[in-house]
Nucleic acid binder design. Structure first.
Length: 574
RNA sequence: CGGGGCGUGGCGCAGUCCGGCAGCGCACUUGACUGGGGGUCAAGAGGUCGUCGGUUCAAAUCCGACCGCCCCGACCA
C-alpha cells in the first residue's frame, strides 16, 4: 500500500451525496475529471475488471463470442440506419482533418449489423451471438450520482442474430439467464421488469433493476404476484366500467369549474364518471387525448401510441390557437377544430358510458357523453400512468407499489429495425433472402460497480463481495519497522499468494488505528493482522470485514481459515 | 433545456452581507515522543480566493460577462 497510487479521504468531497459515490471517492477508487467523466484508480480498476470477468464468463456460457468494435464511426453509418435523429444531441460528433463527420459511438447496433452483412450470408451461419466490453460515449443532458449516469462509460453490449422468432427466443432466454447469474455473482439483487421498448416495439424488452431509494427509474411491482414493470410501460386494471345504459346528451352549466376535482364536487359524480382531456404536441402535430377523469396520462405511452418521438403538453396559447377551450374541452361536436389533430383515447373511455365531459365553451359541460355515439377516437390505446395503489393488471387482486431503482441491464428484441434499412440479410433454406431477427443486450459496468458498493457497505466503508473485491485479503502490518514483523509479513503474504489469494499489504508507517480504519473503508473481505503481540503468541489475527470481532489462529491454519471466511462472505453476497 | 445551489492550498470549511495583512481542521514535509481503532509536541512547505473585465487609494469581498461543478425536473437507444 505504500506504493499504491491513490489515497483514502477522511471526508467525502462535497459533490458526493449517495453512499456509493462517497465511498467510491473516499476509498480512492475513482477520481472525477469532468462532469460524468472519471478516471479509475488501481483499486477501482481491479474491481471493475473482476466484474468484467464475471460478465465474460457468463456471456461465454451463453454462447456469445467476445469481439471489439471501434468507438469512432463514420456518421454515414448512423444515417443509413436512420437513427441519427433519434439520438439527437446525446451523440458526440466531430469532424476529422478532412472534414468527414465522425461519431463517438453511444452504442453499436449499427456497426454490429455492418459486421453481420459483411460476414454472414447463410442461415447455416446462424445463430450468431457476440459481445464486447468497451467504452460508450453519450453527451447526457445531466450526468448524475457519481457513476450512475456518466458521459463516457464501460458497457458490455451483446447482440444476437437469429433466423426466426423461435430461434431468437432461445438467444433471448440465454441472455436472460446469463444476466440473472451475473447479478447473483456480483452481490446485487436485481428485479426483472417489463420495460418500454420505445418506437421499436415488440414484447421482449426487460430491464434488470436494482431497487434503491437513490434510483432514477420508477418501478411498479405487485406484492402478491410476480408482476413488475417500469412505470414507463406498467399496465394496471382500470376497474369495472361505470355508467350503465347510455342516457341523453345533456348540457349543464358549470361556472368556473375547470378541474376534474371541482367538476366531480360540483355535479356530485365520482371522478371516474368524468372524462379528462389532454392537449399535446406530438413531434409538432396536435393531439387531443382523452382519459377517464380519475386517471393520469403516461406521456411515453402516448408518444408510442402516436408513433411520435417526443410528446409535450401544449401551452395555453397553442391550445387557444387550435380553437380548443382549456378546462372545458372535449372531442364532442368539435369536428372542425379537430381536423388537423389526432384524437386518441385511453382504453378506459370506450369501456365507460355516460361520462361528464367538456362542452367546448367556458362554463359548460355535457352529461352522458358516450364514445362511439357522440364522438369517436382515431386511436384507442393504453395511455394510463400506473400509480401506487392501482390494481395489478394480472387480475391477482393486489395493488401495485411504486419503488425507485437503478437500471443495471436491459435485454431487448430489436427485430429487423437495423437489418432492414442496412440490408443485412442471409439466404434461407428456401433459397430466398431473409432478414435476421436481432437482439441487443446491455450492462453498464461502472453503474454495476456503484450498485455493488451501494448494496454492500456499512458506516465504516465498503464490504466487498469476494467476487468483486480488488483483493481477497487486506494484510495489516503493525510495527512494520521491526525486522521480525517485516519478516513475518513477507512470509504471510507469500503464503497467501502461494495459495492463490490476492493480497493488499499495508506496509505503511502508520499507526494501527489508521490502518484498521483504512482497512474498513477499503473493505477487502478478509483482514489479516501481523503484529508483535500476535507474533509473541505465535498467531496471526483474522477477521472477516463483515464480522464484529477478530480471531487468532496459528500461522499453519491461516490459509484454511481465510478460505473459509471468503467462502462464507461469498455465500452472504449471493 | 427550466429551476436552485456552489466555486478560497490535496479534502472539508470560515471569511463575502458591511472592501483594508488570506485563515481554521484534516492531510503533507522535518524532528522528537508514541505504538492495537484516524495519538502528542515543535518547526515548516503549499493558495494569482474559477476566469476575464470594470469600480476603487485599496477587491476573495462590490458590478458585469464567461467557465466549471452539484442537486431537482425535462430528457435518457
Amino acid at each position: 500500500m505504500s506504493a499504491l497510487f491513490g489515497r483514502t479521504l477522511r471526508e467525502a468531497p462535497a459533490e458526493a451525496e449517495t453512499a456509493n459515490h462517497q465511498l467510491l471517492l473516499r476509498a480512492g477508487l475513482a477520481v472525477q475529471l469532468a462532469a460524468g467523466v472519471y478516471s479509475y484508480m488501481p483499486l477501482g480498476w481491479r474491481a471493475l475488471r473482476k466484474i468484467e470477468d464475471i460478465i465474460r464468463d457468463e456471456m461465454d456460457a451463453a454462447g456469445a463470442q467476445e469481439l471489439l468494435m471501434p468507438a469512432i464511426q463514420p456518421i454515414e453509418l448512423w444515417r443509413e440506419a436512420g437513427r441519427l435523429e433519434a439520438f439527437g444531441e446525446t451523440i458526440f460528433r466531430f469532424a476529422d482533418r478532412r472534414g468527414r463527420e465522425q461519431v463517438l459511438a453511444p452504442t453499436h447496433e449499427e456497426s454490429v449489423t455492418d459486421l453481420f452483412r459483411k460476414t454472414v450470408q447463410s442461415y447455416r451461419d446462424l445463430p450468431r451471438r457476440v459481445y464486447q466490453i468497451q467504452n460508450k460515449f453519450r453527451d447526457e443532458a445531466r450526468p448524475r450520482g457519481g457513476l450512475i449516469r456518466v458521459r463516457q462509460f464501460i458497457m458490455k453490449d451483446a447482440y444476437t442474430f437469429d433466423a426466426d422468432d423461435e430461434a431468437f427466443q432461445a438467444s433471448y432466454d440465454a441472455m436472460d439467464r446469463a444476466y440473472t447469474n451475473i447479478w447473483r455473482r456480483v452481490g446485487v439483487p436485481a428485479t426483472r421488469v417489463q420495460a418500454d421498448s420505445g418506437a421499436i416495439g415488440g414484447k421482449s424488452s426487460h430491464e434488470f433493476i436494482f431497487l434503491t431509494g437513490i434510483g432514477e427509474d420508477t418501478i411498479a411491482t405487485c406484492g402478491a404476484c410476480d408482476y413488475a414493470a417500469n412505470q414507463e410501460r406498467a399496465e394496471f386494471d382500470r376497474g369495472a366500467p361505470a355508467g350503465g345504459a347510455p342516457g341523453p346528451l345533456t348540457p349543464v352549466e358549470t361556472p368556473g369549474v375547470t378541474t376534474i376535482e371541482a367538476l366531480a364536487n360540483f355535479l356530485d359524480v365520482p371522478a371516474a364518471g368524468t372524462a379528462k382531456a389532454g392537449m399535446y404536441l406530438a413531434d409538432g402535430r396536435p393531439a387531443f387525448a382523452v382519459i377517464r377523469g380519475d386517471l393520469e396520462f403516461n406521456e411515453l405511452k402516448l408518444a408510442n401510441s402516436l408513433g411520435a418521438r417526443e410528446v409535450r403538453p401544449m401551452t395555453d396559447d397553442e391550445v387557444a390557437a387550435e380553437g380548443w377551450v382549456a378546462g372545458y374541452a372535449s372531442p364532442v361536436g368539435l369536428e372542425d377544430a379537430l381536423a388537423n389533430a389526432t384524437v386518441i383515447a385511453d382504453t378506459s373511455i370506450p369501456e365507460a358510458s355516460n361520462l361528464v365531459a367538456g362542452g367546448n365553451r367556458a362554463d359548460l359541460h355535457l352529461r352522458n357523453v358516450n364514445h362511439g355515439r357522440d364522438w369517436r377516437a382515431d386511436i384507442v390505446a393504453d395511455l394510463g400512468l400506473a400509480r401506487a395503489g392501482d390494481p395489478c393488471p394480472t387480475g391477482c387482486g393486489a395493488a401495485l407499489a411504486l419503488d425507485r431503482g437503478i437500471e443495471l441491464g436491459h435485454i431487448f428484441r430489436l427485430g429487423t429495425v437495423f437489418s432492414e434499412p442496412m440490408q443485412a440479410d442471409f439466404s434461407g433454406a428456401d433459397g430466398e433472402q431473409h432478414l435476421p431477427i436481432m437482439g441487443s443486450y446491455g450492462i453498464g459496468v461502472e453503474r454495476l460497480l456503484a450498485a455493488v458498493i451501494e448494496q454492500n457497505h456499512d458506516e465504516h466503508g465498503i464490504i466487498w463481495p469476494p467476487s468483486v473485491a480488488p483483493y481477497d485479503v487486506h494484510l495489516v502490518a503493525i510495527g512494520f519497522d521491526r525486522p521480525e514483523v517485516a519478516a513475518a509479513v513477507a512470509e504471510t503474504e507469500a503464503a497467501l499468494e502461494a495459495a492463490g489469494l490476492s493480497v493488499l499489504s499495508d506496509d505503511r508507517d502508520e499507526r494501527p488505528g489508521v490502518k484498521f480504519t483504512d482497512a474498513d473503508l477499503l473493505g477487502m473481505p478478509v483482514r489479516v493482522t501481523v503484529s508483535p503481540r500476535n507474533l509473541k503468541q505465535d498467531v496471526v489475527e483474522v477477521k472477516a470485514r463483515a464480522a464484529a470481532e477478530a480471531e487468532s489462529v496459528p500461522a499453519s491454519a491461516l490459509i484454511d481459515r481465510v478460505r473459509a471466511l471468503l467462502a462464507a462472505a461469498g455465500d452472504g453476497a449471493s
